[in-house]
């Protein structure tokens, strides 16, 4: 992985890599994320949890955005900032419509997710694990999912 030092913000480093949109890529993506987490100084449990969130997100891209394997690529970019790791996942699959999905809440009991056979669990994991989650869709850049993990406790929500 190539880590480049930003010219404008000295403390910031970033790396980007493209992966084929197939389940076999999940292992390689995990290696990429572990490397970024190591750069961020995360402990093994935090690293594993971030790896889990990214795995869920990439599995969703393959299954739902592309609707199957080998349809398109997943671009994974990691920005290491002073206080946090920002992971950006981009795909050119079907436009993601966040309004169609109910954002999981901490207060929703797990039993509700157990009843769902195949839906929502990955998204539930992502929201549980990451400190910030945001989606964007544009015709030029496709779907962009931004995941943030702070090195210590995240700042209070405004």
């Amino acid at each position: 992985m190539q880590w480049g030092i930003s010219k404008t913000i000295v403390v910031e480093v970033s790396a980007s890599q493209r992966f084929p949109g197939r389940y076999e890529s999940l292992t390689k993506i995990a290696e990429f994320i572990r490397c970024a987490c190591a750069q961020a100084g995360f402990d093994s449990c935090t690293t594993y949890s971030v790896e889990t969130a990214v795995d869920e997100a990439c599995s969703n891209i393959i299954e739902h955005a592309y609707g199957g394997e080998d349809i398109g690529e997943i671009c994974c970019t990691c920005h290491l900032e002073e206080d946090r790791l920002v992971i950006i996942l981009q795909d050119n699959g079907k436009p993601f419509k966040p309004e169609k999905f109910r954002i999981p809440k901490d207060t929703i009991p797990l039993k509700k997710y157990k009843r769902k056979k195949k839906q929502g669990l990955g998204l539930y994991f992502i929201y549980k694990i990451m400190d910030e989650v945001s989606f964007a869709t544009s015709p030029s850049e496709g779907n962009t999912l931004t995941l943030v993990k702070y090195k210590s406790s995240p700042p209070p929500q405004a």
């Binding site: 449990c45 797990l110 549980k128 694990i129």
Partner: peptide, 14 residues
């Protein structure tokens, strides 16, 4: 330990 920690976080260990 790392797997158990995440399972705890998402409430699966119960």
């Amino acid at each position: 330990e790392n797997i158990r920690s995440t399972l705890d976080l998402v409430g699966f260990t119960e």
